[in-house]
């Protein structure tokens, strides 16, 4: 714990990036625990709002960390959170790329890859569960979440249409 929110953001997201197995979204629950439970920087509902904004915007989903940083400490917070979430792991990737290419057929590589895959699936399911719980307050909202998931799984409809539908239903006060 430090007194400066910027230092805390840098420390938290820097460490988080190094254990973010499965990418940025898989660690959403850990982000929620950090910013909502540990530091009390925002409510779970605000956290879900920020995730929604990041989803509605173009670009990598991990930019939800920029929005969290913004909410905590403005533009500097956004920049610090984004750099902390991307730089440590970029350095690791840079250093590791050649080893990875050389060991294409190595036993350890295949075992680790196949062993980590179901862990990632579990983390994604957890993220989906917790975000749904934080985002949805009414039965209608749960219905919209379920409908969206079903449409995405069953059709090739562009997600922007669904986001637009959600905005309209929200504006009309239906969810």
């Amino acid at each position: 714990m430090t007194d400066s929110p910027l230092a805390q953001l840098a420390l938290d997201f820097g460490l988080l990036s190094l254990i973010a197995v499965g990418g940025g979204i898989a660690v959403l629950p850990e982000m929620q625990r950090m910013v909502v439970d540990n530091h009390g920087w925002m409510t779970a509902a605000t956290f879900a709002d920020l995730f929604a904004l990041a989803q509605a915007a173009p670009g990598p989903n991990v930019l939800v960390v920029s929005l969290i940083g913004w909410q905590v400490a403005g533009l500097a917070g956004a920049a610090v959170a984004t750099v902390a979430m991307t730089v440590p792991t970029s350095v690791l990737t840079y250093a590791f790329a050649r080893v990875w290419e050389r060991s294409r057929d190595a036993h350890w590589r295949k075992a680790i890859q196949r062993g980590l895959a179901p862990v990632t699936v579990g983390l994604m399911l957890a993220a989906a569960y917790l975000i749904t719980r934080a985002a949805d307050e009414t039965a209608a909202a749960y219905a919209l979440t379920a409908f969206t998931a079903a449409v995405v799984i069953a059709t090739k409809l562009h997600p922007l249409w669904l986001i637009a539908l959600g905005a309209v239903l929200g504006l009309l006060g239906i969810v």
Partner: peptide, 23 residues
């Protein structure tokens, strides 16, 4: 606020779909 609530429910659905597809 109301609009974001709707978008949040949809965004959660997108994530649910991705997780279920991966599963």
């Amino acid at each position: 606020e109301a609009t974001i609530r709707g978008v949040s429910a949809t965004a959660a659905g997108l994530l649910v779909a991705m997780a279920l597809k991966m599963a």
